[in-house]
């Protein structure tokens, strides 16, 4: 029973991956919108873009990690 609950918890934690996806999409979309308005400034800001994506994605990875822990380590 406990293992099944852990599996349910893992599934719930996986929702966090979707949330991170929203975040990454937000970052990339807003970057694209800005880049199309001012293409000349876009090239200098790709590093910032990747840092932003990395931070947003890290939280999704945390959710994934929680899911993995529930699946395999609890």
């Amino acid at each position: 029973m406990e293992g099944e609950l852990a599996h349910i918890g893992a599934g719930l934690a996986a929702i966090g991956s979707g949330a991170a996806a929203i975040g990454v999409g937000n970052v990339a979309g807003n970057f694209l919108a800005g880049a199309l308005r001012n293409p000349s400034a876009a090239a200098s800001q790709t590093a910032t873009l990747f840092i932003g994506i990395a931070f947003a994605e890290a939280l999704g990875i945390f959710a994934f990690l929680v899911a993995l822990l529930l699946m395999f380590a609890v």
Partner: peptide, 12 residues
């Protein structure tokens, strides 16, 4: 976050 991001992404 620095370590878990890398390992987590690759592992996932």
């Amino acid at each position: 976050s620095h370590s878990i991001r890398l390992a987590g992404n690759v592992m996932a």
